[in-house]
Design a protein around this nucleic acid. Structure first.
Lengths: 154, 154
DNA sequence: CCTTGACCTCGAGCTGACTTCAGCTCCCAC
DNA sequence: GTGGGAGCTGAAGTCAGCTCGAGGTCAAGG
C-alpha cells in the first residue's frame, strides 16, 4: 500500500500490453483512473492491471467500451474487488459468447447448405435470400451479435 | 435481356434490403455497377441482386468491402457467373467462418476455465494474462479473425 | 546542476462503412 | 402537360476506438 505499489504509465504499458495512448484514452473515458504526482504524472494502482485485463478480454469478445465501463461501474466502490466480483462480470459474458458462436454456426450451416444444395436461386436459399435473412437476422435488426473487433491489426 | 430486365434503384432497394445510400456507395467503391438512362438514372441488371446477396453474406461473416471487391473481381468477366462460380467464392469463406468459430470457442473455454478455477492471478490465467495472450492472440497480431460487424445496430 | 528519457496536454487525424443534406432533375400516371 | 414521388450529385457528417504530433515538463542518474 505504500508508494512503491504505484506504477508509472510506462510500467503499465509494459505489463498490460496497451499503448500509452490507449491508457490515456481509457482514462478520459472513465474506464480506469490514476492518481498524479505533484508534477502531474500518472501513478497507477496495481489493481488497474486487472481492470485492463478485463477490458482486453471484453474487447476480444466484441463488447464496446461503453458497456465495459458500465460493467466496471458495477464493481463495488470503496473496496478492492474480490475474485467473486470479477467472476460475476466474466460470467455475464459467457452468454454473449455463446450467442455469437451460435450465430456463426448458423451462418456456417446456411453456407454449407447453399454450397451443398445448389440452391442459389434467390427465391429459396436461406443464406442468399434477403427476405428471409439468414433466419438469424431479424428485421434488419440483429443478424449477428454486436461487433467483434480486434484492438489493432497492424 | 430486354429493357424490362433492368431494375430501378428503388426496386433494388426493395429486393436487396440495402438502402439507396449503400447501393450508391457500393457503386462508387466498385462493388456493383449500373447502366444509366439517358436522364442519368441508374438501371441495374438482375444479376446485381446476386452480387448484393453475396455482399450481404460476406459482410455478415465480417469480411471487409475491400476483400469483397477482390472476390467479386475474381468472377469471370464477360459471362454471367454460374452457380459454380458463386459456390467457389462462398466456399473460400467457409474456412474463415470456421476460424472465427474456433477462436470464439477458445475464448469461451478460457473464460470457463477462469470462472471455474478461480485463477484470477495475473501470473497464471490464460485469459487474463496479457503476456500469454489468450493463446490465440499472437504477438499483438491476430487474436481473433478480422472484424465481425453488423451493418447497423439501430 | 545537467542531461536525457519518460511523461504531459490538447487537438487533429484516421479507418470503415455508410448516412445525411441541400438543391436539383427525371419520368410517368393522370 | 403537369404534379409529385423517385432519383441525382458531391460534400460533409457520424461513430468507435484509438493514434499522432507539436511543443513543452518531470524526474532520476551522474
Amino acid at each position: 500500500m505504500d508508494t512503491h505499489d504505484l506504477l508509472t504509465i510506462g510500467e503499465v504499458v509494459d505489463r498490460s500490453g496497451f499503448p500509452h495512448s490507449a491508457l490515456r484514452y481509457y482514462e478520459r473515458e472513465g474506464l480506469v483512473s490514476a492518481t498524479r504526482t505533484s508534477g502531474g504524472q500518472r501513478r497507477y494502482e496495481r489493481g488497474v492491471l486487472r481492470r485492463l485485463a478485463f477490458i482486453r478480454a471484453a474487447r476480444a469478445i466484441g463488447i464496446g467500451l461503453d458497456e465495459v465501463r458500465e460493467a466496471l461501474d458495477r464493481l463495488p466502490a470503496g473496496r478492492t474487488p474480490t475474485k467473486a466480483d470479477w467472476t460475476r462480470l466474466s460470467r455475464s459474458w459467457r452468454g454473449r459468447l455463446d450467442e455469437q458462436i451460435e450465430a456463426l454456426v448458423a451462418l456456417r450451416d446456411g453456407l454449407d447448405s447453399c454450397i451443398g444444395c445448389g440452391c442459389l436461386s434467390l427465391a429459396r436459399c436461406r443464406l442468399w435470400n434477403p427476405d428471409d435473412r439468414i433466419g438469424v437476422q431479424g428485421d434488419g435488426a440483429r443478424l449477428l451479435p454486436p461487433a467483434l473487433r480486434r484492438p489493432a491489426v497492424g
